[in-house]
Simulated assay, not measured.
Amino acid sequence: MSERIVVVGAALWHEGRLLAARRSAPAELAGRWELPGGKVEPGESSRAAVVRELREELGVSVEAGERVPGEWPLKPPYVMQVWTAALCPGSAAPRPLQDHDELRWLTPAEIWHVDWLDHDVPAVEATLAHAAPAGQDT
């Protein structure tokens, strides 16, 4: 059986908006948008990885919520899982620290105004279906 490596993406919602991060590296992904996150380390839970990755990549303290149903294939052996997340009270504002050069808070109506990475598109669709703030049009 082949190895499977889980990558977590964070659906970070704040005041009804979803955070999107624009890749600056590697070159083939630069300029396109993704849900921030990264690889789950050996012995680490997916939930803990969301918290750690957002601290490392964006300098924020978050609380991981629930997993968005589904799993999306990346370049083998990687698969992506998405978790909802919320900023902890008193957290610094997110800023791009690693692998990103811009961040945007998108309302549900603005979600498709950015050029998402191909493998993030179905994950973002599932996130909207699962976790978009109540009372807002997607």
Rank of each mutant, 00 (worst) to 15 (best):
G65A: 09
G38C: 12
W116A: 07
A30K: 10
P77D: 13
Q136M: 15
L128G: 01
P26V: 15
V6F: 08
A126D: 07
E66V: 06
E63D: 13
V62K: 03
L58N: 05
P94K: 05
G38K: 11
W33P: 01
G59R: 12
W105I: 04
V68W: 01
E3S: 04
V124S: 03
L97W: 02
E110A: 14
A134R: 15
L12W: 09
T127V: 10
D118W: 07
V79H: 06
E3Y: 01
T138A: 15
K39N: 10
L128V: 09
R95D: 01
H130E: 08
A30H: 09
E125V: 12
A132W: 02
L103T: 03
G31N: 14
A93E: 15
R17T: 12
M80H: 04
L29M: 15
R22P: 05
V121A: 01
G65D: 09
L35C: 08
V79M: 01
A129S: 09
V114G: 03
A27Y: 10
G9T: 13
E102P: 00
A10I: 12
V7F: 11
A30C: 14
L128C: 07
I111D: 00
T127D: 02
L58T: 05
L54V: 10
R17H: 11
P133C: 13
A48P: 01
H130M: 02
L74D: 11
V82Q: 02
L128E: 04
P69W: 13
E34T: 14
W116K: 07
D120W: 10
H100S: 02
H130A: 11
M80F: 03
T127K: 00
L103C: 02
A49V: 14
A11I: 12
R23P: 06
E125A: 07
V51I: 15
P76E: 14
E41Y: 09
G70R: 08
A10Q: 06
K39G: 08
E44D: 08
V114F: 10
E3F: 04
P77K: 11
E53T: 03
W116E: 05
V51F: 05
L54H: 05
T84A: 11
E15Y: 04
E57Q: 13
A10K: 07
P94A: 06
E15K: 13
S61C: 04
W105D: 01
P96Q: 04
A93Y: 01
E34A: 14
V82P: 01
V62D: 05
V51D: 02
S91R: 04
L117R: 13
R104L: 14
M1N: 07
A109S: 11
A85M: 12
E44P: 02
V79L: 02
L54S: 04
D137I: 11
P122Y: 10
W13S: 02
A134V: 14
P77G: 11
S45D: 07
G43R: 08
A131N: 03
E110K: 02
A85Q: 10
L106T: 03
V114A: 07
V68R: 01
A126F: 07
P77C: 13
P122W: 12
G135A: 12
R95C: 04
E15R: 15
P76R: 14
P94Y: 06
S61A: 14
V8I: 15
V121F: 00
Q81L: 15
H100E: 01
R52W: 14
G43Q: 10
V50R: 05
Q81P: 00
V114K: 06
V121D: 00
